[in-house]
């Protein structure tokens, strides 16, 4: 790194700021996006296992039923719902609406509430998701 880079003023680091809900949701948006990108490997693997053979599909389901599999699936569910609900808020922001600070604070609480309810609802309705054998 050249010397001149070191002398430049830096913007305050993340830990300087008080943690607020909109920041947390913003961070989660990016984290859930990365998780979903990696999770698309799982989606393709699930499609391939179903198409390939009964043994492959059973193997995939037994992985999804394991502790690791259930953790991954719950993370997948939460990520998909959070990224989608918060993504809709991003689309609304793109039209120039709801950009005042108090609106962002209140919409953050609404987004969080919807995400928690939908995640739990989806998890209960899908019952941990994996199907039977053949």
């Amino acid at each position: 790194m050249p010397m001149s880079m070191n002398e430049r003023p830096l913007s305050p680091h993340l830990q300087i700021y008080k943690l607020e809900l909109p920041m947390v949701l913003s961070g989660l948006h990016r984290i859930s996006g990365i998780a979903l990108s990696v999770g698309s490997i799982l989606l393709v693997a699930w499609i391939l296992s179903a198409v390939h053979s009964a043994e492959a599909f059973a193997g995939m389901n037994s992985f999804l039923r394991s502790y690791v599999g259930q953790f991954v699936l719950f993370g997948w569910t939460f990520s998909l719902i959070h990224h989608s609900v918060n993504g809709v808020r991003h689309l609304i922001w793109d039209t120039g609406r709801l950009l005042e600070v108090d609106q962002i604070n209140s919409s953050s609480k609404i987004v969080l509430a919807i995400v928690i309810v939908l995640t739990l609802l989806a998890w209960i309705l899908a019952g941990g998701f994996p199907g039977g054998g053949a």
Partner: peptide, 28 residues
């Protein structure tokens, strides 16, 4: 793509819930 994904994710979530616990023949 985000706008296209709004209805697609809605369909996907409902489909996965409907497919939960089903056997391979049903999924195929």
């Amino acid at each position: 793509t985000a706008i296209a994904l709004v209805p697609l994710v809605f369909w996907f979530a409902l489909s996965i819930i409907a497919l939960a616990g089903q056997d391979r023949a049903h999924v195929l």
